[in-house]
Each structure stands twice: as structure tokens, then as C-alpha cells.
Design a binder for these strands. Structure first.
Length: 444
DNA sequence: TCTGGGGTCCTAGGACCC
DNA sequence: TCTGGGGTCCTAGGACCC
């Protein structure tokens, strides 16, 4: 293939010779959060449903009926509340405990269908179908998989299959949109690929966000097909290697790896505060201490430790009438750690050091742990005054106690109990699948 | 009154070294 | 008085994803 200056579509898209044909599947749960809520509320099966973000801030998931009513992703709840009420939409606060557990069930069923599965997000996974049969066989196989997941969990899924991840994403959107595909759409020939790209808006391509769309439209690119006609050096110049990867993937050249996801490189816990935010140092310390404690727990869960922390807090940009401020504090730890007391201590110290005054109302704050390494290969420091082994044992004892008695049964004092900064969740469903006390009841 | 949370990757530019 | 150039590392910021 000449590098980026196609003479014409057919020539440009001739399949590469002598390369094995990959077939990558993308299984995507339909309207995942809404579907999770519906599993336990069959009365909602044909009623519109929406799920709200933390603090009941905005709409983050919509059932098809809600989409048809014109409810948009990201709509601000208080601005659409009247419409939702008028139309009889069932409204839920985010119930991540429930969604996480349902996700595990879906993924566990999917993993029975492919030798390699790459869980990309809470509701999506890539499956490697390469070499598992003829395209027709794989199509049938994937349809069986989709039926199995839907029967086994109550969550409907759509599957796209193609030579690259980006094309598989496109295929899955077709599968979701047109019932005739019976939940699975496969792009296995160049002819189908060209047709799909011509029908596909560039704005909906994986890896193309709002900023890119603006620039692409200005350059006359409106469909995914238009983009593939641009020369590669133009793509490189304007959209860096990131855009070039997408360009190649659309042309059928796989370059987004299907390797297993590595351990996380950063771990973040952050929240918005209800109402207009908090302005007392004590409250902010308490919130930051709890975020830090959660980061430490996530680090230990994946058996890692971190050597740097960032603590941030900022005021609401939607309130220009209030004074604006942004606290951003980095701190490095002498030795990598996942120990509650150390991480909470460092985070609280950082926020104290950067505190300005009660004139600011902080709307959101968070803690990011980074410089992460495995906990079995921590580089020790010669000048470390602490007894590492003792701290490690203490942490393990705390974890054991908390496992039996709940997350924060043993906590740092500064984590407190005041909860002035806690989330608003006025429409929370129960923890049907993870809490014996909230298990579903059948009444006759 | 009320506007989410948790990630990754890439690049530009400054600091620093030889 | 004259004051280089190339490499590497780190960080902030911008873009993207769900």
C-alpha cells in the first residue's frame, strides 16, 4: 500500500496479503446501568428509565424509551426533572455496588466464549475470535453467546466483530441499532467495511472526541470513510500518532493492542460535595482523609504501593458569583506505600499546607495516587526512620478487622464521622446482589 | 439550590547533565 | 569579551475513553 495517498477506494483498501485475518469481538451491554436496575424491577421493562451521576447531578444512562423522549447524556437533573416527571420516567441514583456485581456476572459468562478476553470498562469487553471458525460459524457462535448472557443475567448485549478494535466498535453500534442483526454484526469483508464507514459519522468513531470533530469537519471530513481518504502525513501532522492509529484501524490495520490491561498507573478517588460545597478546613481534611483511605485500599487490592500523591480541591466553575480557587498539591513519599496511616497522613498534611481561607467554597476534591509499583518490589530507603515490617503487619491486622466489620470499622481519627461532605442519593435502589440484608423479596 | 468519577496516552517545555 | 548542542527526565496540560 502506498503510504497514505490512495489512488482510489478499491486500490487503497485492497486487503494486505499474507497477514492472518484477525477477528475481534466487542461485547457491549445495552444501556448498562438502566438494564441493571430493570433486572430487579420487571415492571419497568417497557417504561423509560434514567440513572443519575453521583450527587444526583446529571443523567448518565438512559433506556431506549428515555432516549426517544429526547433526554440527553449529561443532561442536568434539576433542569429536566419536570420532563422526567411528566413522562413518567423512573429515576435512579447510581448504585455502583449493584452495577459492579452485575458486570462481574456478565464478564464471567463472556469469558467462557473466547480464549482471551480484555475487559475494557464496566460494560464492555473485547474477545479474540481469531481462528475459531469460518465467519458464518463465528457469527452464529456470537449470537449464542449474546442469548446466553441475556438469559443468565437479564442484561441485553450487542456484539460487533471485525478485524480491528475500532471497526468492532462500529459493528457493535450497527448491531445495537438494527434488530435485524439479532444482536451481532460482523464486518468481515472489505465491501462491508467500506459501506459501514460511509454510513458512519466521524463523531461516533472511537478515539474521536469533540475537539477532533470540529477540526475534522472543518477539513471536510464528515464520515469515517472521508477520514480514511486523507493522507497519513496529514493525519499525523494534525492529530499526532493517536489519530494515526485510529486512521489505520479504520483501514483494517490492527494497531491497538489486545494485550491484557496492565496494572493501573494512577488511582484516583474524588467527589463533588452537595449544595454549594464546603469551606471549613476541618471538613475538607475529613473528606480528603477518606479519599486517601480509599486510594490506599485500592492500592492494596491490586497489590501495589504508590510513591507520590496529588491532592486537589476546587470551587464550582458554575458559580462565577463566588470567589474561585484551585488547590493542587503534589507530594512525594520517601518509600512506596499502601499503608492507610501514611497515605492519609501525607494527604491531610498537603491540604493543610495549601489551605488558604474560608472565603472559598470547595465543590469538589480528590486524591490521586501515582508512581505505582508492585508491593513485592518496593525500593527501601536507607534513611527511612520507620519500621516497615511493623507497619505492614499493622495494616494487615486492620484489613482483617475491616473485612469482618465493614470498610471503615478501623479508621484514622481524621476520617471522622461528620459526613457533612457526603453524597446526595435520593433515588438509590437496593444492593440486591451483594447485601444479604437487601436481598430481593417475593411476596404473593 | 441543584452541573459525575475514574482512567490512559501524548506532547511541549523546562531543568539538568555532559 | 566571547557563552553550544544534544540527550534525558519530569511535569503540566490537553486530548480521549466509558
Amino acid at each position: 500500500m502506498n503510504n497514505g495517498h490512495p489512488d482510489g477506494p478499491l486500490c487503497a483498501f485492497a486487503p494486505l496479503p499474507n497477514l492472518p485475518v484477525n477477528l475481534i469481538g466487542l461485547a457491549d451491554c445495552n444501556n448498562f446501568f438502566c438494564s441493571c436496575e430493570r433486572v430487579f424491577r420487571p415492571d419497568l421493562r417497557s417504561r423509560p428509565v434514567v440513572v443519575l451521576s453521583n450527587n444526583d447531578g446529571c443523567v448518565v444512562a438512559r433506556s431506549n424509551e428515555s432516549k426517544a423522549l429526547g433526554i440527553k447524556m449529561g443532561d442536568v437533573y434539576y433542569q429536566v426533572r419536570d420532563v422526567l416527571e411528566r413522562e413518567g420516567v423512573a429515576v435512579f441514583s447510581s448504585n455502583y455496588t449493584l452495577y459492579g456485581d452485575m458486570s462481574r456476572r456478565v464478564m464471567s459468562l463472556l469469558s467462557k466464549y473466547a480464549p482471551r478476553i480484555d475487559i475494557y470498562s464496566i460494560d464492555e469487553a473485547f474477545l479474540d475470535f481469531t481462528g475459531m471458525g469460518t465467519p458464518e460459524e463465528i457469527l452464529e457462535y456470537a449470537r449464542r453467546m449474546a442469548r446466553h448472557v441475556s438469559q443468565g443475567t437479564g442484561i441485553p448485549i450487542s456484539v460487533g466483530i471485525a478485524a480491528t478494535k475500532t471497526l468492532a466498535k462500529i459493528a457493535s453500534k450497527f448491531a445495537k441499532k438494527y434488530p435485524a442483526y439479532q444482536s451481532v454484526c460482523m464486518i468481515d469483508t472489505d465491501e462491508k467495511r467500506l459501506k459501514a464507514l460511509q454510513l458512519f459519522d466521524i463523531a461516533d468513531v472511537w478515539g474521536v472526541g469533540r475537539r477532533y470533530v470540529k477540526r475534522l469537519n472543518a477539513a471536510g471530513v464528515n464520515t469515517a470513510y472521508d477520514f480514511t481518504l486523507k493522507p497519513s502525513d496529514w493525519v499525523m501532522r494534525n492529530f499526532t500518532v493517536v489519530g494515526l492509529r485510529t486512521w489505520k484501524e479504520l483501514r483494517g490495520e490492527s494497531c491497538i493492542s489486545t494485550e491484557e490491561l496492565p496494572r493501573k498507573k494512577s488511582i484516583c478517588t474524588s467527589r463533588s460535595f452537595p449544595d454549594s460545597g464546603i469551606n471549613r478546613l476541618g471538613d475538607l481534611e475529613e473528606a480528603v482523609a477518606n479519599f486517601a483511605s480509599q486510594c490506599a485500599r485500592k492500592l492494596r487490592e491490586q497489590r501495589t504501593a504508590c510513591q507520590a500523591l496529588t491532592v486537589f480541591a476546587y470551587t464550582s466553575r458554575f458559580r462565577p458569583d463566588l470567589p474561585q480557587d484551585y488547590i493542587y498539591a503534589n507530594c512525594h513519599l520517601p518509600t512506596a506505600t499502601a499503608c492507610l496511616t501514611e497515605i492519609v497522613g501525607a494527604a491531610v498534611e498537603a491540604i493543610r499546607r495549601n489551605w488558604k481561607s474560608e472565603a472559598y467554597r470547595y465543590k469538589k476534591a480528590g486524591v490521586i495516587a501515582w508512581n505505582i509499583c508492585r508491593d513485592d518490589s518496593i525500593q527501601l530507603s536507607l534513611f527511612d526512620p520507620r519500621d516497615r515490617e511493623k507497619m505492614f503487619n499493622l495494616q494487615r491486622a486492620i484489613d482483617v478487622v475491616n473485612l469482618r466489620n465493614g470498610h471503615n470499622a478501623v479508621r484514622a481519627a481524621v476520617q471522622g464521622y461528620s459526613k457533612t461532605w457526603h453524597l446526595k442519593t435520593e433515588h438509590l435502589s437496593r444492593q440486591f446482589t451483594t447485601n444479604m440484608g437487601q436481598i430481593i423479596e417475593i411476596t404473593t
